[in-house]
Amino acid sequence: MKRKIILGRYMEGDSWVHRLDPRAKMAAMPLFMVAVFMVDGYMGALALLLFTLAVIRGTGIPYRYFIRAMKPLMFLMLFILVFHLLYDAGGSKLLDAGAFKVYAGGLEKGIVSASRMALFIMLAAVLTFTTQPEQLAQGLGSLLKPLTCIGLPTDRLVLMLGIALRFIPTIFEEAERLWKALQSRGLDLSSRPLREKARLIIALLVPVTTGAFRRAIGLADSMEARGYRLGAPRSRFRAFVWKRADTLFVGAFLLPVAAAALL
């Protein structure tokens, strides 16, 4: 089951994208989002796609991983496309089959909207594939730092996020092991009635949840035993260094925004 979920996973590597400051990558995301939403035609979408492909190339991670990252949302993208095809009547008529009419405008809007989503997933995948979860959390912490002055407990949020990110794969693994243990004791869901299926799946959640709680309590104790206090000043093992490449990277994301604004 965990095999299928790839978005959000870190892929080891040593490309220049991996080495970028996580803050730079995170700052690039909203810029990219702006560009994605400003685009409203084939040409713009194509340009953004080329731009994204260039960044993906820079990560050194094969394209197929990015395609796999999109898979869980493929249905949604298809739905968006079909929705626009059916209900958007702009431009010239392309096809007329009784009640079903396709207009050029609808087709363009559908394709652009679906590709907006695809583009955004691809870039989100760039961020998570090339940044270790703890760096992601730490980077987010330093980006949110200014918000502490309006009373937002950013270090608490970052700690929570960091621990959650760290334990999600572990909990998946645990669930997988449990599943395997039950399979080897002859569990065969396909032969069971629906009600029994539902009961079994809920029963499966029990050991996984108790395991997660046990782990959380143990972790809290062990952190406290090693002198961790919320809000206490801490030094960083890996301090971020903002380099020229980071400025260039963020700068590069201004290009599509500027282009979209001008055209």
């Binding site: 092991r177 449990l178 243990a181 029963a203 029990v206 050991p207």
Partner: peptide, 13 residues
């Protein structure tokens, strides 16, 4: 072929 896994708390449910 019976398999007993490593962590007993992850087998009972």
């Amino acid at each position: 072929v019976g398999l007993v896994f490593q962590y007993p708390e992850q087998q009972l449910f």
